[in-house]
């Protein structure tokens, strides 16, 4: 996921670990993006009423891709707020010893 810019040297026996191999990593992410797309596709099926019906209780749930959006937005919000929190609460590791 994170940048693999500094590719570590191969092992003594010449093999490379999974994520040290840019090709495997690239395939890993491709599969992941496909899965995301598939998950979103079910909501399309629901919209056109083919093979899948989304059981909802709230109006919001009916929005296509609601769960995806909420998940994505939620994490972004979480991380940004947490970054802000860090400014307030982070201290040096030596804080307790002072």
């Amino acid at each position: 996921m994170h940048s693999n810019d500094h590719t570590p040297p191969p092992n003594d026996d010449g093999t490379r670990h999974f994520f040290d191999d840019p090709v495997k990593t690239r395939w890993f992410f491709r599969i992941f993006f496909v899965l995301c797309a598939v998950a979103l596709a079910f909501d399309v099926l629901d919209l056109i009423g083919v093979g899948y019906h989304k059981e909802t209780h709230l109006g919001a749930e009916k929005v296509p891709g609601f769960y995806g959006i909420y998940g994505f937005a939620g994490i972004v919000a979480l991380v940004i707020v947490a970054k802000g929190l860090r400014k307030v609460v982070a201290r040096d590791e030596a804080y307790d010893d002072r």
Partner: peptide, 17 residues
């Protein structure tokens, strides 16, 4: 489906961030 959507897009968000 909804759970997978939630989780996968959450992961996606992390990847993007």
């Amino acid at each position: 489906v909804t759970q997978m959507q939630l989780l996968l897009f959450a992961i996606l968000a992390v990847w993007w961030l």
